[in-house]
Nucleic acid binder design. Structure first.
Lengths: 339, 339
DNA sequence: TTGTAAGCGTTATCAT
DNA sequence: ATGATAACGCTTACAA
């Protein structure tokens, strides 16, 4: 016995497929008795509507597309986790696409998502993306879109982001309060929205505490591996040398930590390190590393919730807004030490 | 101008949909001129076949289902990364399902994957799963299945696994050679295949070097957080106390590391620690932690390759086999130190 | 070589 | 209240 279709039920019960369909979806006026019969039989045969047929029919695919730079990344995998949790108990499925930070692949993925008739799209932009025409097109076709984490303001959609400004502010403030004066900022490519926000938070904190902003103390990395070493070198070459590092990603935090260790620079006696990261294992492993923990999972959840909301009440829903999810500063004892 | 269908092309070129279809898929005898015309026009309009319609038609959905315990896990996210890479350049899409280590959800996911007409299934069993009827059923329907990582021998499919035995053997051997005599093994639930294999490797190494196997030195955790502390306590209570820990998962390795640090037990002067893990950040962060690195990505790739092979030549393909991907022992200087 | 028509599973429209 | 039919986009016998 293969998959049961409406047709099977109709045949068995001597009804038409339309009647069965109506009974199943409770719609329209239908004889309660017939309905009961159908429902019962369907239950017994473990009938499951064919989502493919439903999508083809045009209604809804009960699938949402998620486009992220990469899955093998603690932040995004946590976000996806949050998304999947919400989607799952609202009856949606999640189709995942990776851009690998490539604009070209992002465009291809958007096409594919469209072709697969996803009911909505959750996207975090690739670092290569500056032109967002491919998304605007979708919007014009009325496909609900929610941007999260790496968002573009060129695009008028609901956005869900971490509070990068506040997080960076808190981190920098914490370093200042523990006595640091020359705080280096090791960050990710400048054209990404979150980079700007974090930089702004960093600058605001410096300013508020009367420290001068020195652009020589800021270094931009890419997302590649093993670059922290070089950047740390450049920063340490400054005179006077930095007494603290504030890093903007997992990789940079770990890279900087390793780089400092290799140079036998004691943390936090000589240099403090604080990472904007979500790698909470960092917490576990190193008592030297305070972190601004990013609420990856919450962001995923919120984004999914908003998206499903948009999907389900397609009518003029709430206008696009930006939801800012607070970041949490996790301070380790050791960064508290002031000289 | 919305999505282009075969019908649009047919109408524009004054052909029938079947001709267009044939031209597009190059099949059958068809007038080269017509073919050229169709292809050209299709190209110009950026025609993309509707995968939904294709699936409904029954041929192939060009999607593969991937069922894993959880995404927010370094191992699985890397494996998925490998899978996606292969799938992508073979033109397949990846639909991901999480079981959250629940048997019930695994069954539901399998159903869903089936309903979505995936062309094949890649699965890593939940820790709750012992009964594999839900998968056997799929097999009977001729759906290609490849198991990876957490596999069941009850099921006669191709399997792709890390070399857990050799990895555990190498780790234990390394500890013994660096002078350790009482090596504790902190591992995951006993009924999972990989646990058994690792335990066997551990025992084999002990035996080969004439050390006695002491079951009091073996502790089984779950996948929950924060359990390492308790287990480490139990182990340290042994007399004489263990001089090395060999742990079987990321979480246990990090947990043990933190637990030892909290108790001010010097690594590796007092106790050596070696983890069976794939968390290569551990490498970066702690010079104290040697690891048996699991080839998560390679496993994903191999599994995807095998699956697509099965999908594409459905005829009696190669019989199910088990592919064992080597694990690599990454030794840190500090574990080399012998007292 | 090309066209016609049926069918994949479902729902919406129109009859009855 | 229920049934027949068309339609979603595509492929594939079968005809021509």
């Amino acid at each position: 016995m293969d998959t049961v279709t409406i047709k099977d039920i109709a045949r068995a019960l001597n009804l038409s497929t339309s009647t069965v369909s109506r009974a199943l979806r409770g719609s329209y006026e239908i004889n309660p008795e017939t309905k009961r019969l159908v429902l019962e039989y369907a239950e017994r045969l473990n009938y499951r509507p064919n989502p493919i047929a439903l999508s083809l029919k045009g209604s809804s695919s009960r699938a949402i597309g998620v486009i992220v730079p990469q899955i093998a990344n603690y932040y995004f995998s946590q976000a996806i986790n949050g998304i999947e949790a919400i989607a799952y108990n609202r009856g949606y499925h999640v189709i995942i696409f990776q851009t690998h930070e490539s604009y070209e692949r992002e465009v291809a993925n958007v096409q594919q998502a469209l072709a697969r008739k996803v009911d909505g799209l959750l996207i975090s932009l690739s670092s290569e993306t500056s032109d967002v025409e491919h998304l605007r097109e979708l919007q014009e076709r009325n496909l609900p879109i929610v941007q999260f984490d790496r968002v573009s303001n060129e695009l008028n959609t609901t956005k869900v982001v971490a509070d990068n400004f506040a997080g960076a502010f808190a981190a920098t403030e914490h370093l200042i309060k523990s006595g640091r004066k020359r705080i280096a900022h090791l960050t990710i490519p400048p054209w990404i929205s979150i980079t700007q926000e974090r930089l702004a938070g960093y600058r605001a904190a410096l300013e508020q505490y009367g420290l001068e902003y020195d652009e020589n103390l800021v270094r931009y990395g890419t997302f590649g591996p093993d670059e922290a070493d070089k950047l740390v070198d450049e920063l340490l070459a400054q005179s006077p040398r930095p007494d603290a590092f504030f890093t903007a990603s997992d990789r940079l935090a770990l890279g900087a930590l390793a780089a400092l260790q290799r140079r036998n620079i004691a943390i936090p006696q000589e240099v403090s390190l604080i990472g904007f990261t979500n790698l909470n294992v960092a917490d576990l492993l190193s008592p030297s590393l305070s972190t601004v923990v990013q609420p990856a999972q919450e962001i995923g959840q919120m984004a999914a919730e908003r998206l499903i909301e948009l999907i389900e009440r397609k009518q003029k829903a709430a206008p696009p807004s930006t939801i800012v999810v607070p970041s949490h500063l996790a301070v380790r004892e050791s960064t508290r030490v002031s000289e």
